[in-house]
């Protein structure tokens, strides 16, 4: 670690290439914290968007027509509008009309902070795609399998939980991975409402150090690393969940 710090310090002093994050402890901690926040934001959004996706795909098969229309409208609205505009709509539009309360220091505090709004908006955005992905996965489960389950006495819900969903999940996994990679990249727009994630902190660093190309390169490499690690983990998951006879 010390070697790396020396290397980058040398690079700075000799060639004026300023990767300050690697040789300044304070900036290093700040950047690591930012990566942590990006990961936290990503994990929360992935979880909530998966929940939304599963619930939405289930509701889309509902016997009540207005429920189906509502899910359809939700999916289409969130798929066909810019995520940044959605984020602004939530944070500036809904955020300002939400109730405020007094915290222990006696200051007025909004009901949800910018991080929470980012989680909410991005989850809804990715969730809309997940609904469609799960739906096509559920539809791709062979009809004979569903019929076999109901012949064995599974109720509608039980058949969904024990038979349809496990198969549908495997079928929709490639689409899901694609969407989550997209979500990981979209978390960078939380920068716009001041969530201190990677891009935001990088911007704060270059505002002081004037090392824009270096910081931008670092941000690019950070995102590439996050996405690559995620894709690698998912390919392991796919191999782990493989069912012989179902080549997906």
């Amino acid at each position: 670690m010390q070697f790396l710090a020396d290397l980058f310090l040398h690079l700075y002093e000799e060639y004026d290439i300023n990767f300050i994050v690697f040789f300044d402890q304070w900036e290093f901690d700040r950047y690591v914290k930012a990566i942590g926040l990006t990961l936290k934001l990503s994990v929360l959004c992935i979880m909530f968007s998966l929940l939304i996706g599963v619930a939405g795909a289930w509701l889309q098969r509902s016997r009540v027509a207005p429920v189906r229309w509502l899910v359809y409208a939700y999916v289409q609205v969130f798929r066909n509008t810019p995520p940044l505009a959605q984020l602004y709509f939530f944070y500036f539009g809904l955020g300002t009309i939400m109730p405020r309360f007094r915290n222990e220091m006696g200051l007025m505090e909004p009901f949800l902070g910018n991080f929470e709004w980012a989680v909410l908006a991005l989850s809804l955005f990715a969730g809309a795609f997940n609904v469609e992905i799960f739906r096509s996965g559920v539809e791709a489960v062979p009809k004979t399998t569903v019929e076999a389950a109901s012949a064995l006495g599974y109720s509608r819900l039980k058949a969904y939980i024990y038979v349809i969903f496990p198969l549908a999940f495997r079928i929709s996994l490639p689409g899901l991975i694609n969407n989550i990679v997209n979500l990981l990249k979209t978390t960078s727009i939380a920068y716009a409402i001041g969530v201190a994630e990677v891009l935001y902190v990088a911007q704060q660093v270059w505002a002081v150090e004037f090392n824009v190309p270096e910081m931008m390169t670092l941000v690019l490499v950070t995102y590439l690393a996050i996405v690559s690690i995620f894709v690698w983990l998912m390919s392991r998951l796919r191999r782990h969940m493989r069912i012989p006879g179902y080549d997906m």
């Binding site: 990679v181 978390t187 931008m216 995102y223 590439l224």
Partner: peptide, 18 residues
Amino acid sequence: QIFRNSPWLVTLFYVMYV
């Protein structure tokens, strides 16, 4: 792969500042 797997916002920043 580089441009496909990096966020749009980051490439946009890159171009705007460089």
